[in-house]
Amino acid sequence: MTNTSNLDRCQTGQVAVRRPGTMQARSDWTYRPHVDIIDADAAIEVYADLPGATGESIDVSFEQGILTIEARVQPRTRESWHRVVNEFGVGNFHRRFQIDAPVDADHVVADYNEGVLKVTLPKAREAQRRRIPVKA
């Protein structure tokens, strides 16, 4: 997986945006992360809650207008632990969005901090709102 080799090693910091390619097999359970999407005028910003992932376990790709977010999450429990209460499952995350706004695909960036992934998709020049002064 040469495409992911340049992913940041730190748990926080930049996450490389993957170029078109494939993702390795994942474990059994996949969850759909909660996301917020913001139109910040110059860019579309996507925030995804990905608790328990790491910078290197996250895979972000933007291809033909489709943003894909994937994260592999390792089990956190030990074998000696007996389950007393189980209210949520732990597993990988996956979600896809079609972004219809023209995006400057070469400058999509992503970073992961405190369990939250932020993907910034800069709008292509022509899509940015232009303010036209109105003369009296």
Partner: peptide, 25 residues
């Protein structure tokens, strides 16, 4: 609404409570 969801485990020595709180500092 129960938030956060909790997973609770135990072994001989400890009880463990786990919650997902992304973006909470």
């Amino acid at each position: 609404v129960l938030f956060p969801a909790l997973n609770i485990y135990e072994d001989e020595a400890n009880v463990y409570a786990e919650a997902e709180l992304p973006g909470f500092s």
